[in-house]
């Protein structure tokens, strides 16, 4: 879709929620995404981690879906790519496990543990957190969008 057309869709008052919601959503979505990545990347130091951060990432996209309508969300991240990222996250996790096998054990922490309480530490755990975060975020978004598309189809069939 062309940029102008997306802009028209975003600003069309008949699509999505009211202007107030749209304005707030436009500001907050970026912040929510940032916060999600923060939770994922600092998962080995603070509470949270892959799953919690991934849920927050998915919430950002779900907010987009609710505020601006499903079409805008699908332009930003299509269902194909959502399910692709979902699989890539899981593949990354398993591949990291297999690499650990080369060092003796499945899922062995083969990277240097680093200094405790610094961002780059704990070996493979941040990498695993990142892959889980991507997987959970994409999967949850895919679930929302899938249920939404499919539920709409069923309702339209009825009318």
């Amino acid at each position: 879709m062309k940029k102008e057309k997306i802009k028209d869709l975003i600003e069309d008052p008949n699509i999505g929620m009211t202007l107030i919601v749209k304005t707030v959503a436009r500001i907050t979505i970026a912040l929510i995404l940032l916060y999600g990545f923060y939770i994922i990347i600092y998962g080995h130091l603070t509470p949270g981690g892959g799953f919690a951060g991934g849920v927050i990432l998915a919430i950002a996209y779900t907010l987009m879906m609710l505020a601006f309508s499903r079409h805008i969300a699908l332009v930003k991240l299509s269902d194909f790519w959502a399910s692709m990222w979902d699989n890539i996250g899981m593949l990354a996790f398993i591949v990291i496990g297999f690499v650990g096998l080369g060092f003796g054990y499945f899922l062995f922490n083969f990277l240097s543990k680093g200094k405790p309480f610094s961002l780059v530490s704990a070996g493979i755990i941040p990498l695993l957190n990142l892959s889980i975060g991507i997987k959970v975020g994409a999967a949850l978004y895919a679930i929302f969008i899938g249920l939404s598309i499919y539920g709409r189809l069923v309702l339209e069939e009825e009318e």
Partner: peptide, 10 residues
């Protein structure tokens, strides 16, 4: 089997 499941999905 898990690895192949993901590969098949991709």
């Amino acid at each position: 089997p898990m690895l192949f499941a993901v590969l098949i999905l991709i």
